[in-house]
Amino acid sequence: MNPDRINPSAGAAPPDGDDAGNCAQRLSCLLDGELDSDECRSLVERLRRDREACRKWELFNCVGDAMRSADVAAWHSGRFVARVSAALQQEPTVLAPVAASRSASRRWLLPGAGMAAAAVVLIVVGLPSRQAVSPESMAIRAPAPTVASAATPASIERSPRLERYLAAHRELAEPGVMPHSTSYVRTSGAMSLEEGR
């Protein structure tokens, strides 16, 4: 499979497309915080064993990152990010704000809608892996993006300036209630020295 293909409909679903699609959908749900703890556990267990699922997980995160910040997305493979960004720009209708009347539930819907939009973009771009996520499985989540606004909530935007302070803060701060290591997870692995260069 040509990893550079941009055609959404190219290629039929692989033999285990159903399972792959189902897995992708569950990963998407995991990102949206829609799984209960038992489902989370079983999915995490699968991520430990299944390289393909792991790759998808990374892709989903990459797409989410690309939608939020080019800097963060640049952590992932450059070419793929470029294609994701291009696909995002070509898909204004997918991300257009429609349902202003649902503003009461916006706060909770936005993050989920963001990932659902990401899932749609994945189809547009095509997965650079051997197994494509089946478009059927994604179609279930497709209506949600109509709620997505062009603006990303400020809380998930990442500020490089804040990252720098956070890395320096983490280095000397008390671990507190959270385990010591949480502070490293919190700051996306940024380092005070690294950021300064």
Binding site: P111, I156, P179
Partner: peptide, 9 residues
């Protein structure tokens, strides 16, 4: 360890 902050996991 799973860490969640808003929509990020």
């Amino acid at each position: 360890m799973v860490y969640q902050q808003g929509s990020e996991v």
